[in-house]
Amino acid sequence: MIVAEQKPLDEISRMIASYERVLILGCGTCMTVCDAGGEREVSFLHNALRVAQSKIGNGIHIFWEYTLKRQCDPEFLELIVERVAEVDAVLSLGCGIGVQAVAERFPELPSLPGVNTSFMGMTRETGVWDERCAACGDCRLEDTAGICPITRCIKGILNGPCAGTKNGKCEANKDMDCAWLLVYERLEKLAQLERMRRYYPPRNFRTIPRPRRIISKTSVDPGEEYG
């Protein structure tokens, strides 16, 4: 899933300062799971913004709150067409994709980001998420025992550990495991160390010309022209 953190309240307050009527729009998928912008966070933020504006008096806002099942899906955005017609801005607590989906669907309206979208990851324990995928477009996890060095090695290198590792940790962060030592240990357990002995050539960054698009092979209508 996509993991994000809600922006600090004062940054959000500054962002909405010039808009009177603001829709705080939550997202029911990833942002709900990572506690950054689901229904609960929308409600907390709504209250916090009201308290903040009564304290510092930076304009009088009127807030609405709503949480869509997914902001990144056009069909769900249709559900807020009427509400959006009555506001001056949408404060999206969706990830960066949600903010942009709102902007594309409602071109006449400012779409403001309420969270900092951070990474694709998984839940480690309650309230802790770890990055696991860099969406590099060229997955080699079969060669690295299911551990991604592009994401989990700070240098994203392909041919084994650098010499900066100490006590099994990364040179850049003493709390972070060296990805390549994890890869080594797991390949050894799987009796696949020969995969680490192979030479891996430089990555093909053409697999990630931005922005990317994927067209389903079963799709009938590939949609609008790219760009």
Binding site: N159, G160, P161, A163, T165, K166, N167, G168, C178, W180, L181, Y184, L193, M196, R197, Y199
Partner: peptide, 18 residues
């Protein structure tokens, strides 16, 4: 470069050979 005193030497030796 190579790191003979690495505390986890085997992966360093694989890299050395590469």
């Amino acid at each position: 470069s190579v790191h003979p005193e690495a505390d986890f030497i085997e992966p360093q030796l694989i890299k050395f050979e590469k």
